[in-house]
Simulated scan of single mutants.
Amino acid sequence: MNQITVYTTNTCPYCTMMTNFLTENGLPFKEVNVQQEPLAANYLANKTGQMGVPQTEVNGQWVLGFDPDRIMQLVK
């Protein structure tokens, strides 16, 4: 089972593209909105050194931005 978490904001078009991509490919994921959860924003900054979204954690690996090819490489 894949562990996928997408970190998003309310105004990010690439976040919507990422969640739509995962949904269309039947990949279950958890969405965390960093605007609504400030602790998640701190977690991202500490884990990846990046504040941009989307950031997607796939089975412990990080994907920055909308990168469907990289997502598909990481899913089992």
Rank of each mutant, 00 (worst) to 15 (best):
residue 1 M to D: 13
residue 2 N to Y: 13
residue 2 N to F: 09
residue 3 Q to T: 14
residue 3 Q to M: 09
residue 5 T to F: 00
residue 8 T to C: 12
residue 8 T to Y: 13
residue 9 T to V: 04
residue 10 N to F: 13
residue 10 N to T: 11
residue 11 T to M: 09
residue 13 P to M: 13
residue 14 Y to E: 07
residue 15 C to M: 02
residue 16 T to I: 12
residue 16 T to N: 08
residue 17 M to V: 01
residue 17 M to W: 06
residue 18 M to T: 15
residue 18 M to W: 04
residue 18 M to V: 03
residue 19 T to I: 07
residue 20 N to Y: 11
residue 22 L to A: 09
residue 23 T to V: 07
residue 23 T to I: 05
residue 24 E to Y: 05
residue 26 G to M: 11
residue 27 L to D: 11
residue 28 P to G: 08
residue 30 K to W: 07
residue 30 K to I: 14
residue 31 E to H: 13
residue 31 E to V: 14
residue 33 N to T: 09
residue 35 Q to K: 08
residue 37 E to H: 11
residue 37 E to Y: 06
residue 38 P to F: 05
residue 38 P to G: 04
residue 39 L to I: 03
residue 40 A to N: 12
residue 41 A to C: 07
residue 41 A to R: 14
residue 44 L to P: 00
residue 44 L to Y: 02
residue 48 T to R: 02
residue 48 T to S: 03
residue 48 T to W: 01
residue 48 T to Q: 05
residue 49 G to V: 00
residue 52 G to L: 02
residue 52 G to T: 08
residue 53 V to S: 04
residue 53 V to D: 04
residue 54 P to D: 11
residue 54 P to C: 14
residue 56 T to A: 13
residue 56 T to K: 08
residue 57 E to Q: 01
residue 58 V to K: 15
residue 58 V to C: 15
residue 58 V to R: 15
residue 59 N to G: 07
residue 60 G to M: 04
residue 60 G to K: 01
residue 61 Q to E: 09
residue 61 Q to T: 07
residue 61 Q to V: 05
residue 62 W to D: 02
residue 62 W to V: 01
residue 64 L to P: 00
residue 65 G to F: 03
residue 65 G to K: 00
residue 66 F to V: 07
residue 66 F to W: 08
residue 67 D to E: 15
residue 69 D to M: 06
residue 69 D to E: 14
residue 70 R to H: 05
residue 70 R to W: 01
residue 70 R to Y: 02
residue 71 I to M: 15
residue 71 I to N: 12
residue 71 I to T: 12
residue 73 Q to G: 06
residue 74 L to P: 04
residue 75 V to I: 14
